[in-house]
């Protein structure tokens, strides 16, 4: 019971973190058709900027400055780099952002070194939110989840209830028409790209203080985020929320389970035979928790190639 509740909480907070990063990715793709390979690098950039700023000006300053800077970087990329390759098609946009991801990773290694940095939450956030079954549950995990939920509430309000939101949604559906109606679509695109990047930056700034902050964090999270959008269906916010939570929960449960294929065969009396094969058969679920998302993706591809909420290609 303890395991079930703790894992569910961990899974949901991790899922919300995933959604914070994948939401921007999916929003940008839905509007511009650009799959930003460097999106997870924005997440990493957010963590490192927050680390650098917070070591001089305190944690909260870092938390505010990081998304702003990352958002500006995102806008510059959208304004000055992407249009240059646009004419050569989406593959070249993908390649360009792929190169940018590499550059960001190497720049971070250049400035901060190829090892984890000591980015920590402030002591006044380091306490137990509550105690379940004798275990303290860290408040900071809830803080990550709460930040994500607050952000989405804000975004939703912006999109659904304001004039800007209407223009953005119009630009997503019919960019040419929205432009013909006198809206400045290039600025809208730049703004959305910036907000998406800032969201990833904020996620990095918040999560970096809890999870390790190192030059691999962009790639590690990036791959999972890509799995999220394939599973959820690119361009669908609902789909990526569902997939984020699904993968968050799957990962957090699998960490604590020592199930194996051999155990499964044991249920039907083939346990010894499976044990004797070894390899994949005796591999415990907990040791392959990093693999679970990819397996999930392959299953979704087989069953529903368009993703959970996606339209057919």
């Amino acid at each position: 019971m303890e395991f079930v509740i703790i894992s569910a909480l961990n899974g949901v907070t991790y899922g919300l973190l995933l959604f914070m990063v994948s939401a921007g990715l999916t929003l940008i793709f839905g509007m511009m058709g650009v799959l930003n390979f460097a999106h997870a690098s924005f997440y990493m950039l957010g963590a490192y900027i927050a680390y650098a700023v917070s070591s001089y000006f305190g944690f909260w300053t870092g938390l505010i400055v990081a998304p702003v800077i990352v958002g500006i970087v995102g806008m510059l990329v959208e304004r000055y780099l992407l249009p240059r390759v646009h004419a050569h098609g989406h593959a070249h946009e993908l390649l360009l952002t792929f190169g940018l991801a590499m550059i960001i990773e190497e720049l971070i290694k250049l400035f901060f070194g190829d090892f984890p940095v000591n980015y920590q939450m402030p002591d006044n956030l380091r306490f137990a939110a509550f105690t379940v079954f004798g275990t303290d549950y860290p408040f900071y995990r809830l803080f990550i989840g709460a930040t994500a939920i607050t952000m989405f509430a804000l975004l939703w309000f912006l999109l659904a209830r304001t004039r800007i939101g209407i223009v953005v949604r119009a630009a997503e559906r019919l960019p040419a028409m929205a432009e013909a109606l006198g809206h400045n679509i290039p600025v809208v695109f730049m703004g959305v790209f910036g907000v998406g990047a800032a969201l990833a930056g904020l996620a990095g700034a918040v999560a970096g203080a809890f999870y390790p902050t190192n030059p691999n964090m962009g790639l590690e999270l990036g791959v999972i985020v890509f799995v999220v959008v394939v599973v959820g269906g690119l361009g669908s916010l609902k789909g990526s929320l569902l997939a984020s939570l699904l993968i968050g929960l799957f990962s957090s449960y699998s960490v604590g389970l020592d199930w194996s294929l051999a155990g499964l065969f044991g249920l039907v009396g083939l346990g010894d035979w499976a044990q004797s094969i070894g390899g994949l058969m005796t591999l415990e679920l907990s040791s392959v928790s990093a693999t679970i998302p990819f397996a999930l993706m392959l299953i979704v591809l087989l069953v529903r190639p368009a993703g959970l909420m996606g339209e057919r290609n």
Binding site: H90, V230, L234, P293, P305, N313
Partner: peptide
């Protein structure tokens, strides 16, 4: 099974 950017993501995964 997927094309375009999805294909790229699946190969990466």
């Amino acid at each position: 099974m997927r094309s375009g950017v999805y294909f790229a993501l699946v190969t990466l995964a």
